[in-house]
Amino acid sequence: MGIVADVTNDGFILSSVPNFRDLGGLRTATGRTVRHGLLYRSDALHSVSEEEVAVYNGLGIRQLVDLRTPHERESLPDITPEGAAYTAVSVQNPEAAGANFSAALTDPEVARRMFADGAAERFMLGVYRELVTDAEALTGYRDLVERAAKGPTALVFHCSAGKDRTGWGAALLLGLLGVDRETVVTDYLASNDRQANTDKWMRLLAENSGLPWEEVVPMTRVRAEYLDTSFRHIDEVYGSFDNYVVDGLELSGGTVDLLRERMLR
């Protein structure tokens, strides 16, 4: 029998992985509800504390989908829960600027050129456009949806901070399930209060880059306009979210039906 995981008083399932959370409980526009305990989103899973491993193992996770780049995965390997299959699914070209911003922050000259004087916000807007049109992203997010629809559950998917690559993955899955846009944005913005782990390494990177923390902050938080950039870019390129699903992600109606049948009550 698995251990029942109680959400702690601070709202965390795993306090050592602050952006680990269940997408269950969200309502769809038609009045249905996303089932609890089937679909989790998270920040990097190398930081699960020894004290919380039993809770982590008790969640019944059978698929762990890692959206990070090869460098990120090798630097900080995940702790995979007992009984789960680990899969790396790329949603960014590892050579793209958006996938290598941490490396850029190690070089003060490059960091100033890329992120100073408000450029960090423009950088993030570019990342959110790439997440919905780049070939690697289209292939990767299709894979994520198919795994959620057809693979063993529960499933957890994550990147490093659990806010951008994971944020779009959650927005996509919730959109396919029929959750309204306002609720999707609310879930997305919840990452802002769960960045304690990310802030530690981002502050170190900021110090190494010579940039003031204020110049780096746009990359450490989510903003509604970031997610809106993805949705607007979808409309510009594909005409609608539905067209993006069919023509961009090339997901079949059968896969979407399976996802809804599994995840909704």
Rank of each mutant, 00 (worst) to 15 (best):
L204F: 06
V4L: 03
G126D: 09
R68N: 07
V132P: 10
A5R: 02
V48P: 03
L39V: 02
L131Y: 14
R41Q: 06
G83D: 10
L39W: 06
L67H: 11
V7K: 02
R203C: 06
E236M: 11
K200D: 11
Y86A: 08
G2E: 11
D193S: 15
G25W: 04
D22P: 00
S16A: 03
E121K: 14
I61C: 08
V89G: 05
Y40P: 03
M263D: 07
E95C: 06
G98R: 01
D107H: 14
A85E: 15
D247T: 08
A119M: 10
A104Y: 14
E225I: 04
C159L: 03
T229H: 12
T87W: 13
D257H: 11
A88E: 13
L138M: 06
S42E: 04
R221Y: 08
L155H: 04
R35E: 12
L64D: 07
V4F: 02
L38H: 05
L64S: 13
Y86I: 00
D242E: 15
Y128T: 04
N197G: 05
R181Y: 04
E236C: 01
V216L: 06
D107T: 13
A85G: 09
T198P: 04
D43K: 01
D187R: 07
V222A: 14
G239E: 11
V185R: 04
A171V: 02
A29K: 14
V246Y: 07
V17H: 09
Y56F: 15
A170K: 03
I13H: 07
A161M: 11
G169L: 01
S102W: 03
A149I: 04
P152R: 08
G83S: 04
Q195G: 10
R223C: 00
R142D: 08
D257C: 00
L205S: 11
V246E: 15
T255P: 05
L125S: 06
A149D: 09
L155W: 04
E130H: 13
L26S: 05
D247M: 03
V237M: 05
H71M: 14
D66K: 11
R181S: 09
H36A: 10
A103P: 01
L23M: 11
G210A: 11
P152G: 08
M202C: 12
V245W: 03
R265I: 06
H36S: 12
W201N: 09
P77N: 13
L39H: 02
E95N: 14
I13D: 00
A170M: 13
N9A: 15
L249P: 02
A154S: 15
E82T: 13
S230P: 09
G210H: 10
A5Q: 03
N93C: 11
P70T: 10
Y244L: 03
L227F: 01
